[in-house]
Design a protein around this nucleic acid. Sequence first.
DNA 1: GACGCTCTAA
Length: 526
Amino acid sequence: MKNGKLRIRPLTFPFTLSLNQVFPPKDDSISLSSALQHYIASDSPSQGQKIHTHLLKIGFIPNTNISIKLIILHIKSGCLSFARQVFDQMSKPTVSAYNYMITGYLKQGHIEESLNLIHKLVFSNEKPDGFTFSMILKLSTTSSNRIPSDIGKQVHTQILKSNVEPDDVLFTALVDSYAKNGKVGYARTVFDMMLEKNVVCSTAMISGYMKQGCVRNAEDIFEKTFDKDTVVFNAMIEGYSKLLETAKRSFEFYIDMQRLNFHPTISTFVSVIGACSVLSAFELGQQVQTQIMKTMFFTDVKLGSALIDMYSKCGRIEDARGIFNHMPEKNVFSWTSMIDGYGKNGNPHKALELFNKMQRELRIKPNYVTFLSALSACGHAGLVAKGWEIFESMERNYSLKPRMEHYACMVDLLGRAGSLHQALEFILGMTEKPGSDVWGALLGACRLHGDVQMAGVAANEIFKLSSDGRPGAYVALSNTFAAAGKWEGVSEVRELMKERGVSKDTGRSWVGTNSGLCGFHVGQKM
DNA sequence: GACGCTCTAA
C-alpha cells in the first residue's frame, strides 16, 4: 500500500496489542499510527518500541508521519539514539522532526548535538519555525562557547525576516535571551512590544534586571504584574539575595508570599539560604533550615549545597560538614562547596584531601569551579608545586581549558609564595590576553611583598583594561605604596583618582541585633 | 498533531 492511501480501521484503546493485530495487512498505516499514538500518550512509551523492532524486522519503510511518531516514542522512552536512527533514515526530515530531535537532545543536556542539528536544519530546505527559534533562544541562555552572545539579535532578525508570527512564548524566549546575555535594554524593548504581558515574561524581565543590579526596574515590573505566582516571587527573592544591600528584602518577600498563600519551593529556600550567606546570618540560616526540614525538600542536592555554602561562609565549617555527610545524594556542586568551604576556612589540606577523594574514590569529575577552589586552597596552604600539578591536570586529565580565573588563581598562588617574577613570567606566557583579574592578582601579591615597582606595572595594565573608572586597582596601588611606607605615592594615586573621576564607595558592614540586621559604614556613630 | 518561555547550589 502506498503512503496516503489508507484503509481506516478503528481501534479502541487501551487493549493489549499483539503485533499481528497491528499489522495484519503488512503496513496499514492508520492502525500503525494509532498504535504508536497510544503508546506515546501512555505512561509506558517504551512498550511501543517493540513496534519499531517489528517494523525493522519486516523491512517497513515508514512515511514522514510514522517516522515522527517513532521519534517521539523513542524520545519519550529516553532512547535518543533510536530516535536519531529514525531521523537519519528520513529522506526529507520535516522541521518538526528536527524540532523533536533538538528538544530531545536539549532536555538531556546534549548541547553539542542540538547545535549540530540546528546547523543541519539551517542548511536544509526546511525553514525553522517558531519552535525552532524558541529553542535556539533557549540555547543562547546556556553557557556554551559555541554560541555567540549576540545570537538573540540574530534570531530576532531571522524571525522578522521569516513568516513566523511570534506568539507569547517566542516573545518571552526573546526577552529572556536578551536579558540573560546582558542586553536588558533590548529585552525591555521586546517586552514593551508585547500587548498582553503574562507572568512568565515579567519573570524573565525581572531576573534580567536583577542580574544587572537594576533593582528598581525589577520592582517596577513586579508591581505591575497582576498574575503573580510562586516563580515570580522566587525571582525577586533570588535577585535580592545576591546583594548585601538588598538581601534583607529576600526575607520580606519570603514572608509576603506565604501570607498570600504561595508555598515556598526549593528555589525559594535556595535563595533565602543564599541571602543568609551574603549576610553571614547563620542563626537565621538555621531557622530556615528548620523550615526546610518541615518540608520534603531537605534531601535536595541543590538545597544541600546551598546550606553547605551558607554555613561555611558563616565560618561554621563543622555544620557545613554535617550537612555534607548527611546528604543522600552528592554531586560535583556539593563536593565543590565543601572543598571551597575548607579552603576558605583555613583548612586547605582538608580541602585538597576531599579534592583527591572525589576524583579517586568516587570518580566524580571536577569542573571549572572545583579547580578554582582547589587552586585557591593551594594558594592558602602555600603549596606551589601542588598548585602547578593541579593546574596542569585540568587540561591533561579533564580536557578543561583553564579560564581567566584559573590563571588569576595561579598568579595569586605564585605571588603569595613570593615568586613575583615567576608570576609575571607566567602572565607574559599566557596564550590569551591577560584580563584585569590576572593583573589584579599580581598587584595584590606586590602589595603583600612591598614590590612598589612591579605594582606600578600591574596597576598600569589594569588602568589600560578598565576605562570605566573602576576603583579597585587605584586603591590596591595606593595600599601598596602605603604598605611600603611611600606616602608620596599614596597621594599621587589619590590625585590620579580625582583627576580621572574615580571614586570608591564607602565600605559597609552588617551586624545582627535584637531588632534585626543593622548596616553601618566606616566612621558612623551609633 | 504530541515539539518552544520565567525562578534553583559551588
